[in-house]
Nucleic acid binder design. Structure first.
Lengths: 203, 203
DNA sequence: TAGCCTACCAAGCACTTGCTTGGTAACGAA
DNA sequence: TTCGTTACCAAGCAAGTGCTTGGTAGGCTA
């Protein structure tokens, strides 16, 4: 098979195109509230034609979420294995997450609003697993930061974790690329608030 | 009609009971993903019987959200009209919001996950109005805090507002009453992080 | 020229959705 | 005893759901 025989002339196959369309709709109105007819309409084809490319509606989200998460965890693993301090790793992880919001908004939004529902199917059991791994990573960094004296010791770690996790990922609800703020800008401001607070001359 | 002829012997009418059941399901799995049969099953009746008490599924959420928001805004208005400093008002508003999460978890959760969808119907136009009023209140307090020197001036107000708003309301996703943390405890910790940050010996 | 592949359409099936309709049983007041 | 009220059931409808089926048109390859 020669390279010229690949079915994607523009670099993005029809399949990938459809997947992106589906991702946009899932992110916008939720997985269950998006019908296969919605997706087909947006793509300019009939709903039955989608099944030439995909097994099911479920397999579309599956592919979207799995691909994204695998990529994100490559970055997390690299950060965890680096020789940064706990605080440095925490900052790097926050920055990587905001980058993910910038580059994979749809996938993050889908995960945010539909992971709980999807996880009820055993097909999506890996979502629960990844979630636990995520919590372990973040709380581990927070604990290490307290132990090293970089972070204050008088706060409830579990609560700080949830605070941190939620504030980072919920940003996907309002962040739109192309504005004046880059994901790096948002990460800077968030880290400043998180680390130093909004009070003037505190402590 | 004597007082003894009221249909609610326990103080909670059957209607209110059904509304509470519906609220729990809406909060748990979303408005669109909850069927009238789900609600009826949970109440131990058939779906058609619900229509003896309510006009439609929509009117159930409507009643839940409107009642809750009216009550919440009574508190906000009182805080705004008080003679606290900007920072004091900000703290009070955050605390009132966490109290709302404690006492009206279902309604807050429904608003968080379904307001955007519901607002597409003109019946729920008041949700958009309330949202704008909310943003005006919070950003106004932040700006007043910066002007009075209570809050630092080097941060993007619009971004701090979103940070603040999201961190408060997203807590409804994990907060469960009856645990070791009261809403006041969570508010204390969140305000500490928000105002002073998690860094040790900052600035 | 034949065979295969990609991408799609047209029709429809089995099921679920919100909601409607006509009826019944229990109960208190007149 | 009659009447209205409250609370429900049983059955079902129209619209919409995910998905399947049998088919076609065009292009590439041998």
């Amino acid at each position: 098979m020669s390279a010229a025989s690949t079915p994607e002339p523009a670099g993005l196959s029809r399949r990938d195109e459809l997947l992106a369309i589906a991702g946009g709709l899932f992110a916008e109105r939720g997985f269950k509230n998006t019908t296969v007819r919605d997706i087909a309409d947006a793509a300019g084809i009939l709903s039955g034609s989608l099944y030439h490319h995909f097994d099911s509606k479920e397999s579309m989200v599956d592919e979207l979420l799995d691909t994204f998460q695998t990529e994100l965890w490559k970055q997390y693993d690299a950060i965890e294995a680096s020789d940064l301090t706990a605080r440095g790793k925490l900052e790097a992880v926050v920055r990587a997450s905001f980058e993910a919001i910038g580059e994979h908004r749809n996938e993050v939004a889908i995960f945010q609003s539909d992971a709980l529902y999807l996880a009820t199917f055993e097909r999506f059991g890996y979502l629960i697993e990844r979630n636990r791994k995520f919590r372990t990573l973040w709380t581990g960094l927070l604990e290490a930061g307290v132990a090293s004296g970089e972070l204050r010791a008088d706060l409830d770690i579990a609560l700080v974790y949830r605070f941190l996790r939620d504030t980072v990922w919920v940003a996907v609800r309002w962040y739109r690329p192309g504005g004046t703020l880059t994901p790096a800008d948002v990460a800077d401001q968030y880290l400043t608030i998180l680390l130093q607070g909004i009070e003037k001359e505190s402590r």
